[in-house]
Design a protein around this nucleic acid. Structure first.
Length: 294
DNA sequence: AAGCCTCCCAACCGCGGTGCA
DNA sequence: GTGCACCGCGGTTGGGAGGCT
């Protein structure tokens, strides 16, 4: 059945009987899929694949559409703002990529998952620690995320003419950035035109095992327009997100002097915004934390 | 120039959830 | 209640691209 309720083929027909194509999609296949969906809509992927004349499984068609052909798929490097959001949301929800992707308009769960594996897990590997360890998570939250915010601030303060950053008048009320200590002042991040509420709730876990329902109650809306250039129409209605954790370690782990090297920050700010969040300095800071037994 | 290595990402796989007959 | 088919998610893999020697 397609979206109009028309049945093209028997859905009991097994995939093996059909000698399905696999591997990379051709332009012709893409066209077939796009044309069919533009006329009939998406859904009922198995029959859609056959009605469209594609020798592909429904799964394959769905994946191709969602991850690549959909018109609102956003391409290009993950921005600093997006990196920050991914780190924050992952610290809350863990590997729930599709949920995280809901708050990054145009980004797919696959893309975010790939980003996490190639960048974040790589860093954990270099540090010889588990990506799920408390040390790694704490360092991410109390060192790397504030660092990201500093970079976003710096990028925005370099002028609105910089097309790579859409943020203007950025204030990050949640942090005292550009200082040697990082502490939380309020529970709101204001990212230029975007604002993320961080109402404190009962969830304080950093293991990703959190209750969605609680989050739903806490925050009714997140404005993610800062992720979409100057297009303020991209106003994501997100009724699930909340940021209950402050960026202050509950145990004060990272409240002592953090020696952020200005020189190296400058190097970062001048670099590609898609580069890794971490530099050698961060690794050094992290290793220092480990040595102190934190 | 050629071979090797690493990185990245598109695509696949397996499984659990859901809806329906 | 049960079985079946579909859907969607998270984990994994394979191959192309680019860098390095």
């Amino acid at each position: 059945m397609n979206s109009q309720g028309q049945s093209c083929v028997s859905e009991s027909q097994s995939e093996e009987e059909m000698d399905m194509r696999r591997g990379p999609w051709t332009t012709e296949e893409d066209l077939l899929l796009v044309n069919y969906i533009s006329k009939h809509g998406e859904g009922r992927w198995n029959s859609l694949a056959q009605c469209a004349g594609l020798k592909r499984t429904g799964k394959s068609c769905r994946l191709r559409w969602l991850n690549y052909l959909r018109p609102d798929v956003r391409r290009g490097n993950i921005t600093l703002e997006e990196q920050l959001l991914i780190l924050e949301l992952h610290s809350r929800w863990g590997n729930r990529w599709s949920k995280i992707a809901q708050f990054l308009p145009g980004r797919t769960d696959n893309e975010i998952k790939n980003y996490w594996r190639t960048r974040v897990q790589k860093q954990a590997k270099q540090l010889k620690c588990d990506v799920n360890s408390k040390q790694f998570k704490d360092n991410m939250r109390y060192v790397w995320m504030p660092r990201l915010i500093e970079r976003i601030q710096a990028a925005s303060s370099r002028g609105s003419h910089n097309s790579s950053s859409s943020i203007s008048n950025s204030t990050f009320n949640g942090f005292k950035a550009n200082s040697n200590s990082v502490e939380s002042a309020t529970q709101t991040y204001e990212l230029g035109c975007g604002q993320v509420n961080t109402n404190l709730g009962p969830e304080q876990s950093s293991n990703g095992a959190s209750s969605d329902s609680v989050g739903t109650q806490l925050v009714s809306e997140v404005d993610c327009s800062f992720l979409q250039g100057n297009n303020k129409n991209n106003h994501l209605q997100a009724n699930q997100i909340s940021y209950p954790e402050t960026l202050v370690s509950p145990h004060g782990y990272f409240n002592h002097e953090l020696d952020f090297s200005v020189t190296q920050q400058d190097e970062w700010f001048g670099g590609d915004i898609s580069e890794n969040v971490w530099g050698m300095e961060d690794i050094w800071v992290f290793e220092e934390q480990l040595c102190r037994g934190l």
